[in-house]
Design a binder for these strands. Structure first.
Length: 239
DNA sequence: TTGTGTTTTATTGCCTCC
DNA sequence: GGAGGCAATAAAACACAA
């Protein structure tokens, strides 16, 4: 079974939790709330059975499956995530278990599998988020530098205009104007490869003749920023 | 040994589908 | 309406540090 099939099976209608969108609370959210409100009550007979009080038969107690049984079930789970009733009964007979136990085992196993996939998904989203934060910080830093540079140029321009006015006796003069930025003072905008791929900015960046940093260069750059005290916290991972 | 955290097995209540 | 699935949860079993 492919991972995509797997996820389709396990997340038939995956959505971000309703609390992410409080303004769009729906009846689905209500259902979830209702579920969370619920407090399970263990029926007395079930509690007694678990405690071994009803006749004291060992079968009623919670028993761990043997390694062999668990291994067999695990192999079956790898082949098929859900069991048809006949297969369930057959499996139970082969393992000397109750069909209900096999069903429960599969149910719990699916839940474990799902939560593992969720963790992986979360980790991916988090790293993408971190990358966006870093990129944003980088761009803000770049913007700051450009603003400083612009201010310098404007100042230079004003000075030149004043000098021109003094020497020509007050004429207009438009000297010194064509300020094409020197390549050394303007650093190029860089895109982290992960970001570029993820958000489709690659083509646009190429078109604009922007250069790319290697992973190493990028990390070094982030270290520099961290050392300079930019965007505190975000760079902890680099230092 | 014991307190505590984690994993596993089982139950309950709700939902969907046939 | 019954079967089966899922989420939430309880509780036993287990692991492990102090």
């Amino acid at each position: 079974m492919s991972r995509e099939e797997d996820e389709k099976l396990l997340f038939p209608s995956f959505a971000f939790p309703a609390e992410c969108f409080p303004e769009a609370a729906t009846s689905g959210g209500e259902q979830k709330k209702a579920r969370q409100r619920r407090r399970r009550k263990v029926k007395p007979e079930a509690a007694a059975a678990l405690a071994g009080e009803s006749g004291g038969d060992e079968q009623a107690k919670k028993r761990r499956l043997s390694d062999e049984q668990a291994r067999f079930l695990e192999m079956s789970f790898k082949k098929e995530r859900k069991l048809e009733t006949p297969r369930k009964v057959q499996l139970a007979a082969e393992l000397g278990l109750d069909a209900k136990q096999v069903a429960v085992w599969f149910q719990n196993r699916r839940a474990r599998h799902k939560s593992k996939l969720m963790e992986e998904e979360f980790a991916k989203l988090r790293s993408a988020h971190d990358a966006v934060v870093l990129q944003n910080c980088h761009l803000e830093t770049e913007l700051l530098k450009l603003k400083e540079r612009l201010a310098d140029v404007e100042e230079e321009k004003a000075k030149l205009a004043a000098v021109a006015a003094a020497t020509t006796g007050g004429g207009g003069g438009g000297g010194g104007g064509s300020s094409s930025p020197t390549s050394s003072s303007f650093s190029t905008v860089t895109y982290h490869p992960v970001l570029a791929g993820q958000f489709g900015v690659e083509a646009a960046a190429e078109e604009a003749d922007l250069t790319y940093m290697s992973e190493y260069a990028y990390n070094s750059y982030m270290l520099e920023l961290a050392a300079a005290g930019y965007c505190g916290g975000v760079y902890d991972q680099f230092s």
